[in-house]
């Protein structure tokens, strides 16, 4: 849940990057981290195993600027993608304001994508959220790989409700900021809607 602090005139929102193991959630955050002005970002934290698989979460605080005199900050989190870390994923979804689902475009990962998006729905429901009622965007990552599934096929399988979606290659950064901007805008629009 967003936190509005009148004393420091700040608004903080939490965005979670979700998706199957090795789909590029951490790579998204790393790219954002390396390309953001040092004044606008905090330290990036990665709680990872020795083989650099996310163990608990990655965390990156970002300042976007001011709206009506309020500093707008986004806290970006990733979840561990591997199936057996489900307990940790549930914890990270607590208090979420917006979700990015990072899909792995490789054709052989379609099953893992579907399993992960179902898991997202189940875990959100446990927290009292419905995926189609919260700010949500999809990123089809690894579009640069030769074994990437056609975009139409990914859309048909993963995005039947037609939320905003983006093609990306997180290692080169293509589509990374477009995805972030889209989810941040949706979160802010949602806050506006809820406060009316």
């Amino acid at each position: 849940m967003s936190f509005i602090n009148y004393s420091s005139r700040e608004i903080n929102c939490k965005i979670v990057y979700y998706g199957p193991g090795l789909c590029g959630k951490t790579t998204n955050l790393q790219f954002i981290y390396t390309k953001t002005n040092p004044d606008l970002k905090g330290k990036m934290i990665s709680l990872a195993t020795e083989t650099e698989r996310t163990l608990f979460f990655d965390f990156l605080p970002l300042a976007l600027g001011q709206i009506r005199g309020f500093k707008t900050r986004f806290h970006l989190y990733t979840v561990p993608g591997q199936v057996f870390y489900d307990a940790s994923r549930k914890l990270i979804l607590k208090g979420v304001d917006g979700v990015v689902f990072v899909a792995d475009s490789q054709i052989e990962r379609m099953e893992a994508n579907l399993e992960s998006i179902d898991n997202l729905k189940v875990n959100l429901r446990e927290q009292g959220y419905e995926l189609d009622k919260i700010p949500f965007v999809i990123q089809y990552n690894k579009r640069d790989l030769p074994n990437a599934a056609p975009l139409d096929e990914l859309r048909r399988q993963l995005n039947p409700s037609g939320v905003q979606d983006f093609e990306a290659s997180a290692t080169t950064g293509e589509g990374v900021f477009e995805t972030l901007k889209a989810v941040a805008k949706t979160v802010l629009s949602d806050l506006k809607r809820l406060s009316r």
Binding site: I4, I11, I67, R68, K181, A184, L188, S189, K192, S195
Partner: peptide, 18 residues
């Protein structure tokens, strides 16, 4: 009676951030 600063923001305010 919520006085959230977000009640008054416009789409332009959001766009300006980006």
């Amino acid at each position: 009676t919520s006085t959230s600063p977000f009640a008054e923001i416009t789409d332009d305010d959001i766009d300006n951030l980006f």
